[in-house]
């Protein structure tokens, strides 16, 4: 399975490439301060409206400087998933979602069987597991779980 990886602070994270639609340079985001802090806001990308998740905030890392470069990762919607993705049991959200990451790094191939479950002391809801590629460890994220958590929180408030 291919993983698209990106850097947040010093750690490398990955999501299945089949779930990623596109990478692009940051574009203006309309802020929504009253929403969950992890939600930076919303933006318009070629006619589609996507909610922007600030991955640093999601992972509890302090906000980066304005000047530090970052990138945007546009995730696939469930309507846009290819057969292969569905066969692998990968899930996507119905609406477009964008992740703001520090830097996107390479695509790695990993054997799904070698992905280990999240370690016991890592409490994040959305860490699916840890994969090894070469001598690097990549934390595999489940964006749908992250989204569900945000939905859950906002409905509570």
């Amino acid at each position: 399975m291919q993983l698209s990886t990106f850097l947040i602070d010093t750690e490398t994270f990955g999501v299945p490439t089949l779930l990623v639609e596109e990478l692009f340079r940051p574009q203006p985001v309309t802020r929504v301060p009253s929403a969950d802090p992890r939600l930076e806001g919303i933006t318009n990308i070629r006619g589609k409206t996507a909610v922007v998740l600030n991955m640093r905030r999601c992972l509890g890392v302090s906000d980066a400087d304005e000047s530090v470069a970052n990138e945007m990762v546009l995730m696939e919607t469930s309507a846009g998933l290819v057969e292969e993705a569905k066969e692998l049991g990968l899930e996507a959200f119905n609406d477009p979602v964008i992740l703001r990451v520090d830097e996107s790094t390479s695509i790695c191939s990993v054997n799904p069987k070698t992905i280990q479950p999240a370690p016991a002391h890592v409490n994040q809801i959305f860490v699916e597991g840890v994969a090894k590629s070469g001598d690097r460890y990549i934390t595999v994220l489940s964006i749908t779980s992250l989204i569900n958590d945000i939905l859950h929180h906002s409905s509570e408030n």
């Binding site: 929403a35 969950d36 409206t49 609406d95 939905l151 906002s154 409905s155």
Partner: peptide, 13 residues
Amino acid sequence: PRLLQNETVFSGH
């Protein structure tokens, strides 16, 4: 968007 639906001060975008 679904993720912002609890923000009752907004009725759309």
